[in-house]
Design a protein around this nucleic acid. Structure first.
Length: 573
DNA sequence: GCCGTTTTCGGCCCGACTGTTTTCAGTCG
């Protein structure tokens, strides 16, 4: 196991310590930048160190290279330890509270001796804190809210973080001798936007041996339980993983049971009872006789039901729909023919137009829209009109070279505070794809925000609203918006709403997107990719859409190019 | 702390928004 992650985390922590110590901001940035680049490094950092090529890592100069080498060789970093003597890691942790930055923390650290969360909470209740410059009642309330949000986020991790870890775990389990395949269950299989733990199910004729192998798979942080049929560990990543081992005859029953949701399973067991049957994690029983259990499909059949996809299993009406034969024909990842919200080096993306187009071709897409930011997004290098026109030229050249994929000229244009857009209509008119999004002024009141977004929907050149609620899972609440009115307006004006597949967003969420398709609104499932790798976020978007009962016919980027293009052109004065 | 023929010192992304102010500091992206 390479030490890339550890070293990146150390530099990240050091940057935070330096920021609390009020150090040179550029030095702080240097540490952070190095951390990011180390995390993205394609090889084990020990190898680069052994070759003496650490300084070839971007952002790593002589000093940081020395520190990395010291850590690789000794497992320690003196400077890091020295910093911790002044500023403990508990204090650094407080920076993760949204609304509490280094300046305020430094003030409280020095002035009130606040070193950890307990100190902070006590101080927030006391009167002394108001003595400090810049501290007022609203700020204190902000920090309190931030603490609550952080607490919530600690319980559940984001889908896009955990799913890859779960998949590699499944692979590892399937390589354990005497197992027959392995599969993810639980909320991960249901593609919930956040998950608490990883559930893995496998088949074996010797469960205890498999559990034993599982708990010693990797140098796991902690073994919570290790028994005859199930084992439970805390992975290095800090996430709990449970393994259940069953015989082949019970595989379907166990999968159903451990996939949940609990509410769905309770309903199924109720149905079974009425038929004189009993369902448990080993099978379906009539008296003592087991009549199903090998497959999930077989179990649903004994209840007179068709197979219900995992994403629907929330007891949100799927059982009634199944009984009445009106389950949705859910969109599949394979139905997706293109990505309509992506960024490139023209604004804040990491890849060029050509690289993004190549990657999209590699995914078998028919089209990709390049939608860089508009000028208000200065931090994201949003494009002034002259740059937009330059980009248009490059994109046209790039598009001209390609036979297999259509490269569309687009923008993610900012919806400004007053509801107008960040480019004039005559510019928007000349673009193939216009996604309009809110990136500023998140604290507007509900009416103002709703009207702001509806103003954008009314613009004849806007095709879709990007990440319509602005939330960042575990980081930022959605802005206050009446989503029903937005959906109504989208339906009225024939505009699409986005399901943004970037896993911190997943916005619209499952419930909202279901409302949207119920109202007849078209959906665009996009990745908002800022790199070629992020084009793979599509599966999170599709998972969220499936949880929202979205069918292929609802999704614009499941259309063949000709039909999509017709839609894009329609209704534009 | 990093970086580089506008180089070995002097930059390094910066504007919007908020809450606290009475001209600005802190946070965010």
């Amino acid at each position: 196991m390479s030490k890339n992650r550890e070293i990146a985390e150390i530099f990240e922590n050091m940057a935070d310590m330096l920021s609390i110590a009020d150090e040179n901001p550029f030095k702080i940035r240097a540490y952070k930048k190095a951390a990011v680049n180390i995390l993205e490094l394609r090889e084990a950092i020990e190898d680069a160190s052994a070759r003496g090529e650490l300084t070839q890592i971007p952002g790593v100069g002589k000093d940081l290279a020395d520190k990395i080498r010291e850590y690789v060789e000794t497992g320690r970093m003196k400077e890091y330890e020295r910093l911790q003597e002044n500023i403990p890691l508990d204090t650094v942790d407080l920076l993760r509270i949204p609304g509490l930055g280094p300046k305020t923390l430094s003030l409280l650290f020095k002035g009130l001796g606040i070193r950890n969360a307990a100190d902070l909470e006590k101080a927030l209740d006391g009167p002394e804190i108001l003595e400090f410059k810049g501290m007022g009642p609203k700020k204190i309330e902000d920090i309190r809210r931030g603490i609550a949000l952080l607490r919530k986020s600690k319980e559940r991790s984001r889908l896009g973080v955990v799913l890859p870890i779960g998949e590699s775990l499944v692979e590892a389990v399937s390589r354990i001798p005497r197992t027959e395949g392995a599969i993810l269950a639980g909320s991960l299989r249901r593609m919930r936007e956040t998950v608490k733990d990883i559930d893995v199910l496998t088949i074996s004729d010797n469960p205890p041996e498999v559990v034993e192998a599982f708990t010693s798979l990797r140098p796991e942080k902690d073994v919570l339980a290790s028994g005859g049929t199930k084992g439970s560990v805390i992975l290095q990543e800090g996430i709990q993983a449970d393994l259940r081992v069953v015989g082949p005859e019970s595989y379907g029953a166990a999968l159903l049971y451990f996939t949940g949701s609990k509410a769905h399973n309770v309903r199924l067991r109720g149905l079974a009872q009425k038929k004189g049957l009993k369902i448990n994690e080993y099978g379906v029983f009539r008296g003592d006789a087991m009549i199903a259990g090998e497959t999930e499909r077989g179990i649903y059949e004994t209840l007179g039901l068709p197979f219900i996809p995992p994403e629907l299993r929330e007891d949100r009406g799927e059982i009634e729909a199944a009984m009445e034969g009106r389950l949705p024909d859910l969109i599949d990842l394979a139905d997706i023919r293109g990505d309509l919200h992506t960024h490139t080096t023209w604004s804040d993306g990491k890849a060029t137009i050509a690289q993004m187009a190549d990657a999209a071709e590699g995914l078998g897409y028919e089209y990709i829209a390049i939608t860089d930011h508009s000028p208000s997004q200065t931090i994201a290098k949003g494009l002034p009109i002259e740059r937009l026109l330059e980009k248009k030229k490059e994109l046209a050249e790039e598009a001209g070279k390609r036979k297999r994929i259509k490269v569309l000229m687009g923008t993610e244009v900012d919806i400004k505070m007053d509801g107008t857009l960040d480019y004039p209509d005559e510019i928007l008119k000349g673009l193939d794809v216009v996604v309009a999004s809110v990136h500023s002024g998140f604290k507007m009141d509900r009416d103002a925000m709703t009207n702001r977004i509806i103003s954008a929907i009314r613009n004849p050149y806007v095709h879709a609203i990007g990440h319509p609620t602005g939330r960042l899972i575990n980081e930022r609440e959605p802005y206050d918006v009446d989503i029903d009115l937005v959906i109504g307006a989208a339906a009225e004006y024939g505009k699409a709403l986005e399901v943004n597949g970037s896993y911190p967003r997943l916005d619209l969420n499952d419930l909202h997107v279901r409302k949207a398709v119920d109202a007849g609104v078209k959906i665009i499932i996009s990745t908002d990719a800022h790199s070629t790798a992020q084009l793979l976020f599509m599966r999170y978007g599709v998972g969220t859409a499936r949880r929202g009962w979205v069918e292929k016919k609802d999704v614009l980027n499941a259309l063949p190019f000709g039909e999509l293009y017709e839609w894009l052109k329609s209704g534009r004065g």
